[in-house]
Design a protein around this nucleic acid. Structure first.
Lengths: 212, 212, 212, 212
DNA sequence: CATGAATGAGCCTTCATTCAT
DNA sequence: CATGAATGAAGGCTCATTCAT
């Protein structure tokens, strides 16, 4: 994409990273094999060791949370109405998790690793999840108002994240229940809209209850 | 064979199943090893293959959804008020997923396997998830009223399940963010109550919107 | 050798240990491969892991210093004349190091590992070398008399051990210099006799010098 | 190419050789890795193969026995008393093997390779060991007199070399037995003096016995 | 209905070496 | 006379599985 050429090495690195993201997001860290990743990247088995030291290093570099951060940044700069921004956030987050053409593989890997700690989980928590919680927490604070307790607010946050992640985690199951299921751009937006509606109502109730 | 005493073999089977549930719920199907399960069950390495054919067979038999079904049955017979029954369901489900002393290991295994299809997933879907969806769908129908669309209702169901499963899936992450975190009985009830409040408000909004 | 039968497993273990001793004494710990050892023992690659945990464990068990200790014990019980016992010791030690038919492979492995520390060196030092130094030190004390200093005595010990080990360490070199070279029983005794003569004269001089 | 400045390439070569000597003497030929040598020499991974063909070639060129030969030459020109020259030889040889500041790395490599034949052993034997044996043999002949047999004389030579090499070979072991052990210049001279005393007495006895 | 022993495929990694520039 | 990148063989080890008793 840059107007400069990439070295051969960088191309191999990229191919390796792409193949790794694909494999890790599909089979998990343990389930994916270095051999298969190299095969898909049309590189030698030793290429992973050469470029990334080992499998752990490959995972660490495959995790690129720039899109996730960019999304939050753009969201923060968007229209000041916090409800609208929450809707926007949910939509963007769902697209990252589900969209088959433009989804963020690192986000999907992250989703998988939630339940299955790998050596990279510390980095994931530090660089992606903690900032995400901060961001979402502040946004919810704006919506809920100052009187809602910290704990209540955090639980609202978990409710929202849980709804979003569910569609990723349960994808294999949902596909078995509804074989025709496909997440195209429009369907994702419908789901996101539902989650936003559902959650804004939930937040409204929770914050109202606290007020009263 | 008598309906009183268990044969030695049956005892071994039971120990094997218990150890397997423990291991699968902790490390996942792939992460758990047959050797470790046999060691914990104080059985021979070949015992798994002897009693259950192979690792897949062990998983299939380790999955016992009787408690989950019993819970649904009890729920259906409980107080007729559907909102209260939803609260009850969420509480019971959360206890199964999180309670460290009385939780249902098969439910936890199920939660893990959602995202990582194993040969047992078909059985899980057929015997546990599909009935659960049916049950929860009907309950929500009662709450939301007849005018709410099928799709909307299903999305509400996903919102609820997503919130519940989140606490199980994200446990390793949440524990890193809040090292003091422990799910005792009381805390689980608090969370369940939140999810119920949050969700009933959400359902109310969704069904109301549909009505209008 | 015992009048009881050995289990199949024990036979495999023994074959594995024999092959390992052969390989380790020939190629060193690092140079010997588990695969080759298993091939020679007509066992599966995983047999080493099964019986000994890993390569280190195989080495640890391959080291059997019982013959070395038995030799020292027999020596201590032999004729009281310490000079004669030193001659006996040198002869027995040389036979262990060099005799192609009755030599002690563990001793040869030990000789190799002197210069190339492996995870087993601590055990070797503790169980074989330290006792050997104790034994030889006491024997030399008897020969040299009480007035010789500890340091001098230890250096005499090193002189003796150095002469003995030289023939093992330098074997590849000596064989290139004298291609006809073969260590048969008789030739080893001649060498041992030389070392004994040479060393007793040396000790005599050192202890005399100290006295004067 | 001029007899003043060295080309960049020659400097790299030298750094490579120095690093190789260091590595080979520390970890042995097999234990040392080309990558580590290149890293220490701040050269490219391919530099070794470029300059020396392969790892074997690097070893062959790293072996520089000029110091050893110079030592023998100087010894031959020194004071005519053969006993004194033997003392001198042992001292110089021990310094080469042990002195931490001025020791000869090639000599240490040679000592290591005695027991572990590498493709360079033929060269080592031809260029270093055979000449050394010749030199030492002649010196001992002068000391022992004409009547001592060839075989006896050679065994005396082995006794001396064995004593010297022992301190190098057994260094890892001796250091474990006596953790405080350090070979400074003075301590080496003490050891060398012991070996000389011990050996001259031994030679005296052996040659006397032969005479008688 | 049980077991200790053995199996072989496959994993990640390391290494000396070679290729293309 | 040099280099960064790539290679493939081989290493130790783990695992679910099967064999012989």
């Amino acid at each position: 994409m840059t107007h400069e050429a990439k070295t051969v090495s960088e191309q191999t690195r990229e191919r390796l990273l792409d193949a790794a993201r694909e494999a890790f997001s599909q089979h998990g860290f343990q389930g994916a094999t270095v051999r298969e990743i190299c095969r898909r990247a049309e590189a030698n088995v030793a290429a992973v060791n050469y470029h990334f030291g080992n499998k752990d290093g490959l995972l660490a570099e495959a995790l690129n949370f720039a899109p996730l951060k960019a999304m939050q940044l753009a969201n923060a700069k968007a229209d000041g109405n916090p409800e609208v921004r929450l809707r926007l956030f949910i939509r963007d987050f769902m697209l990252m998790l589900l969209d088959e053409t433009n989804g963020s593989l690192p986000c999907r890997i992250m989703a998988r690793e939630l339940a299955d700690p790998t050596p990279a989980l510390d980095k994931i928590v530090r660089e992606a999840i903690a900032p995400l919680h901060d961001f979402l927490g502040k946004l919810l604070r704006e919506i809920a108002g100052g009187k809602t307790g910290e704990a209540e607010l955090r639980r609202c946050m978990h409710s929202i994240l849980g709804q979003c992640l569910y569609y990723r985690h349960s994808h294999p199951v949902l596909q078995r229940l509804h074989p025709k299921l496909r997440y195209d751009h429009k369907k994702i937006e419908t789901i996101a809209e539902h989650i936003a509606d559902f959650s804004l109502a939930g937040i409204g109730y929770i914050s109202g209850k606290t007020c009263a």
